[in-house]
């Protein structure tokens, strides 16, 4: 067997560097966005569709970033919100599970469209299943969680 561990370590370091650059650049841009008036404006637009699946304000922008750009970006903003305690535990869980199933939908799908897949089916089913999943989790599993955190406040 011919193992090349150095190569694995180099690969791991390159990926780490990539994640560091991606997340730092994103969070700098996000900082400007959060302090601008666009922030409240976009939040207002996103609030209603997000609330129907049980996710509240601060999570909506995280979700959109994750869906469009990918998991490293979405998680970057998610972790920032967690760190600053801007999201409750139910929102953190729902956003994480949603992004687990549904992230970087355009990039991932286009790779398979390039080799012949039907992209509309892939994107459509992914978003649909993620929304159904979150609604179920919200309704049956995390209901008690939200109540207990409200009592805590």
């Amino acid at each position: 067997m011919d193992l090349n561990i150095t190569q694995s370590v180099i690969g791991a370091c390159l990926l780490s560097l990539k994640i560091f650059v991606i997340i730092t650049l994103l969070l700098i841009v996000y900082e400007f966005y959060e302090n601008s008036r666009f922030y409240n404006w976009t939040k207002k637009i996103l609030d209603r569709p997000m609330q129907t699946i049980g996710i509240s304000s601060n999570a909506s922008i995280t979700m959109v970033v994750g869906i469009v750009l990918g998991i490293a970006y979405g998680a970057g903003i998610l972790l920032k919100n967690v760190q600053e305690k801007k999201m409750n535990s139910k929102d953190i869980a729902l956003t994480s599970y949603f992004l687990a199933v549904c992230h970087a939908v355009f990039e991932d799908t286009l790779l398979f469209v390039a080799v012949g897949a039907n992209g509309f089916i892939i994107i459509g089913v992914r978003i649909l299943l993620a929304v159904i999943l979150i609604s179920i989790l919200n309704k049956y599993i995390f209901r008690t969680m939200a109540e207990s955190s409200e009592v805590g406040r």
Binding site: T24, L26, L27, I28, V29, E31, G76, L79, K80, Q83
Partner: peptide, 17 residues
């Protein structure tokens, strides 16, 4: 903004890496 973004980026990416 740049300072906060950098600080958050460093903290969060270390957590992941």
């Amino acid at each position: 903004n740049i300072k906060n973004g950098l600080r958050n980026g460093l903290k969060i990416s270390t957590k992941i890496i």
